[in-house]
Design a protein around this nucleic acid. Sequence first.
DNA 1: CCGTATCCTACCGGATACTG
DNA 2: CAGTATCCGGTAGGATACGG
Lengths: 131, 131
Amino acid sequence: MVTTPAESVLRGSPYRADCPSRRILDRIGDRWTVLVVGALGDGSVRFSELRRRVEGVSQKMLTQTLRGLERDGLVRRTVYPEVPVRVEYTLTDAGRTLREPLRALEEWSIAHLGDVSASQEDYDRPDRASS
Amino acid sequence: MVTTPAESVLRGSPYRADCPSRRILDRIGDRWTVLVVGALGDGSVRFSELRRRVEGVSQKMLTQTLRGLERDGLVRRTVYPEVPVRVEYTLTDAGRTLREPLRALEEWSIAHLGDVSASQEDYDRPDRASS
DNA sequence: CCGTATCCTACCGGATACTG
DNA sequence: CAGTATCCGGTAGGATACGG
């Protein structure tokens, strides 16, 4: 059996401090990045509309998250010098490729979160053997 | 075109505070959970071996991460009452289903982290127009 | 409308010491 | 070996005020 690069990282060698898994987690492992990518979808979205789509995000964190994505080349920022100014954000081609793996994760969560919640409640019951 | 459930969450409605995407991020969005799931692979792994596979994880955080995964029903903990004691961790069936989406993410990072790094360096150059 | 600048708090997570 | 307990600092991120 030929070991693919991905598998060599996943199983062959330990997770080094600079392995791809960690680098990507450092980028999307925060509270908002994944949600912003999802909220952008495949269109152009204004800042204020993004704020509405990602419920609870503060102005500061939305700006910070978008700057990070722009720096990574995953989001393009376009300013229309109208009055008042209009700013639109769009996923780049690279950014769009991120949607598929993220969607896979979301589908997993939709499929399994019920079981996870049930397991948690069972685990938290002080009485009864853990079975 | 029929809108799938996943898409209705991704695009139709805003990301509510209790949507599946957020729940899963709250669980695996921390520093170690994803790495521990990867390090477990499809076998049984001892605590000390896990520490070695996930470079840099502290004893406290490894324990805490494993407890969380056990609570979620994604990891099974087995104690062998030998002297000294031996404890092995294994992904449950549910836990194993998480590996595919996580692997997809890792493969994305392997494929794109080079471009991301290049984009960052370009973005961080003070001089020169952004394009 | 779309930010930036400050301040401030919660908590994640590391270091260390101690048990069964 | 596999934890638990305690302390502690750095930082993610919220609230607020202000600027272009």
